[in-house]
Each structure stands twice: as C-alpha cells, then as structure tokens.
Design a protein around this nucleic acid. Structure first.
Lengths: 273, 273
DNA sequence: GACTGCTCTTGACCAAGATCAACTCGAGAA
DNA sequence: TTCTCGAGTTGATCTTGGTCAAGAGCAGTC
C-alpha cells in the first residue's frame, strides 16, 4: 500500500564531514559549507574574520532539547549549522502555536530583539548544532560593517514577507493547499541547501505539521494519504518522495485548475530560504 | 436596536492642529506629536536634526489612493503621520490578502527591504499624510547613529512578533475570538496614541476586516451583531463604542471561560503598537 | 522476544463558518 | 426630493475540516 521510494535519499541536513570535525576544525565561518546562505554571506576576508570572532560554537543539541525557553532573557541570535528546530509559542490560556521551523543557515531569535525576552521556545527536532551570536556584539559589529547591517535588515525583511505568506496560507488556503504549500516550500529550502528537493526525511511529527499549518493531525494524515493516491508524493513514515512537484505546486497556490506556467517551483522568493 | 454612543468620540487620528499647518509648519520631527512613538523616538537633539533632514513630506493622500503599488521598485519607508492605510497583497491566481493596517507613527515598507520591489500595495483608507524616508539615506544614517539602527531593528522585530500573533489568531482562534482580538488590539493602539480606547471610528470596511481576519463579510456582520446583543460593544455603521473591554479581552484569548485576571488589556505587548 | 508508549491512520459524526440569495440602509448625485 | 449604487445585514443551506473513538504500526526498553 505504501510506496517506499528507493532513490538515494538524503537525511535532514547534516554537515558532510561529521559533527566532531565540524565542531572543532571546521567551526569557522570561512570554511563553513553554509557560508553562502548564512548571515555573513556578504562579507569579505577581513570582515569575515571579525564576524567569526564573535561567534560561539555550542555543543550539539539532542532531539527534543530546548535551545531557548520562552520568556528567558534575550541575549543572542543563533544560526543553525545542522539539524532543525521548531519555535513554539504559548500564549494566554491557549495551547501552543508552532510558529516556525528552522533549517541550516537560518537565524533563530530575530523576533526577540526588541523585547527583553524570547517570544517562544525553540526546540531541536533532531540532533542539531548551532552557532551562537551574542546580539550586543553583532549590533556593535554591524555598525562597523555596513554589509553586515544590510544583511541583517534583509534577513528580517525576508522573514516578515514569509510571515505574510504564512498569514495568507492560514486565512485563505484549504487543507490540501496548505499541505501542498508546505511540501513545495520544504522542497525549495532543501534544494537551496544543496540537498535533493525530491527526497527527504521530515524531522517533525504530523502533529507539528498540523499545528504549524493550522490543521488537525487527522487531517494531515488523510490528505497525505490522498496525495499519495494521486501519486503526487510517496510517503512512508517520515520519509518523503515528491513525485510530481509541478502539480503539487499548482495545488499549493490555487485550486487544481490546469493553468500551466503559473507556478515556478524554483522561484527564488519561495518561502523561508 | 442600535445604541449610538453619546460619549465624546474622537475620529481616527488626525493632527490636532490641522493638515495644512502640519504640512508646512509642524513638518519637523522635533515638534511632531508622534515623535514619542515614531522611528526617531530614541534620538536626541543633533541626531534628530539629521534624521529630520532626510525626511520628505508628501501631499496628503485621499481615501482610496495608492501610496505604494505592489511590485513597484523599493526605495523608501513611510511613516504614517495621520489617517490610516491597508496593505494588500495579490499572489498567484488567488484573491487579495489584506496583510496589515497602518496607523499613525507606524512604518510602512519594512517588508520590502530585501527585495527590489514592494510585496504589496498600500492604500489609504481615509485622508492620510505620510513622511517618506528614503531607505538608502536611512541606512547610511543608521550607521552613524546607533540608536537609530537599534530602533529599526526593534521595530522590525516587533512587527515579526505581531505577525506571529496574527498567525496564531488565524490558525487557532474562532471567529468570535478573532473579532474580539481585533477590537482589543485596535483599542490598545488608539490608547497608546492618546485617543479614546473605548470610542472610535473604523476607517476600514467590513470586507476589509473580514479579509484581514480570514472571515467572510457575513460572519463579521453576524458576530458584531452578537457582540452588540451581549453589550460588549455598540456599533453603528463604522462608529464603535467598546462597552466591556474586559470581557472582550477575555473572549479574545480564549473561550468565554470565566478566568478573571488572565487578561491585561493595557499590556504593553498588545499587538502593533 | 514481549511490553509500553508513542505516533500515525482510519472511520463516523458534528459544527463552525462559507456560500448563495435576498433585502435594507445610507451617502452622494441630479 | 428621489434615484442609484455600494456597503452592510439577515436567513437558509452546504461543506470543510474538527472531534471523538478505536485500532495499527513502530521504537525503545527490560
């Protein structure tokens, strides 16, 4: 009943050369494989060194461990090196809301800058390594290095646009469209990081996906099943094979109207890069 | 059937001394009544002058006029001086999504920084005046004035948190809770600007509210009606009187469980300040 | 291996809110 | 004043996806 994709898969991003080496030898922005996606992407040699100097490496987090606790004092941003995390916000008497997934090269904590405290807990979904960037040092450095400041502005601005896109998803899209959007977006994020956009392993549970997309777990499950019957994807547990990215992409943006060319799956602007 | 509030109302924010005077005499940050809320809020005398120098005043927009067209080249941020605007994004083949309302002292355009183009159109909901802040000049100035840079970071960070709150609203809250949240939030924004938090005029249509909150116009209408019967608010056309902010606030966060003290209507962190 | 919790799936039912349709209201124009 | 048109309201019906309940699958542990 389930189709187990046999193509060479790649698990959720991890540093090719292994964690230990990454931590001790390669723990420098200059040689980091993510440098072209990460915060210092615009920096040249001497500036890069300065930036590298303020970074603190952390020991890897295990699955389920907490990087940040909601309402703990804001001190640093964190760049994801490998693995993945989720941001969860508990507000009022309501249940948690999963507001974001973070993948390698993404920046955690930007939404805490103007408060004294972090607005949500951030939890590792698998073994995860991060670089800590003390914000006061970063702020100071961003005064000396205009490119760094610009990059920070750009990153925040991008995240705001992604939020708006998410708002549209939550207020206008059907359950099918949401799931499709989710896969298309994930696929793009993997592609941009050099991983297969067609074959990957989800590090988050169905419950997480549902929470993030504003759907019940059961709905996620049902629709995944339907997608499978329509041979859009092949899902086995958390292994995902995207079989028809094109249709998926068309489903994501609109009803399944056949309007070819409307969708550009490789679009640079496609969600949380 | 309708209760027309008789208390002294204040219309949507407008500069007390009138538009003309505002435009020509008072068009300086130093004397602007919004300076304590606006971008230069952290600046002292000489810096404030420098900031003031890069601002361009614009002739007032009439209701329905477009400040920014989606996809037009990004050049400037805009600070609202008086009136109000809405941001509308058209994406894919779908209908418009209203992503934000802007009130005086708020900053329009932050989500366009990292793209060459604005991600949405921004349209005046009533007669509205704005200050144009060319971004390249602001960026340059933010290098010289650390307080300005910090303030920019803070503003963006705050907007991100508001977006997350909106995401929670859209994915978890019932229609009643959404409307209640909307009123509580508006009320707080008025209060912070020195206007009555209980009595104001909506500058947006029911359709706008529905679009923003992810609800059909009919639903907005029905629930407004219900709120009225519960004497939470008194609505007559676009005139709003909030009769029971406390309950409204309690409804906003959760089901109408009676858990007193949970809600802090005056909370500083309450949405788009 | 069997046990213990989970995560995930599947089915049956229900309800919140969308949609469709008709009608009212109110502001501006002639 | 009356006309017109868009905004808002109200009612009837339908649909999507939530909720409840039960069972299957799977991973870690003893």
């Amino acid at each position: 009943m389930m189709f187990q994709g046999e193509r060479g898969r790649m698990s959720m991003p991890d540093i090719p050369t292994g964690n230990l080496r990454a931590l001790f030898n390669e723990a420098r922005c200059q040689t980091c494989s993510l440098s072209s996606l990460c915060l210092p992407l615009a920096l040249e040699f001497p500036d890069m060194d300065e930036f590298n100097a303020i970074i603190r490496r952390r020991t890897p987090l295990k699955k389920g461990e907490t990087l940040l606790l909601q309402d703990s004092p804001f001190t640093s941003l964190y760049a994801v090196r490998s693995g993945s995390l989720k941001q969860v916000t508990t507000e009022g008497s309501g249940e948690d809301q999963l507001t974001n997934f973070y993948l390698p090269s993404e920046l955690v904590g930007l939404d805490g800058i103007d408060e004294v405290r972090y607005p949500g807990s951030v939890i590792a979904l698998e073994t995860t390594t991060v670089c800590e960037i003390p914000f006061d040092r970063l702020d100071a450095l961003s005064q000396e290095i205009p490119e760094l400041r610009s990059q920070l502005f750009r990153t925040m601005s991008k995240e705001m646009r992604d939020d708006r896109r998410m708002m549209r998803l939550l207020s206008r899209k059907t359950a099918d469209q949401r799931l499709a959007s989710f896969f298309v977006s994930l696929s793009g994020r993997f592609r941009r990081r050099g991983y297969s956009p067609y074959s990957f392993r989800l590090s988050m549970s169905r419950a997480d996906i549902g929470n993030y997309l504003g759907l019940a777990v059961e709905t996620v499950s049902r629709i995944l099943n339907r997608f499978q019957q329509q041979t859009l994807v092949a899902v086995s547990g958390r292994e995902v094979n995207i079989l028809d990215l094109d249709t998926l992409c068309r489903v994501a943006d609109e009803k399944v109207v056949d309007s070819p060319g409307v969708c550009q799956p490789i679009s640079a602007g496609q969600s949380r890069c």
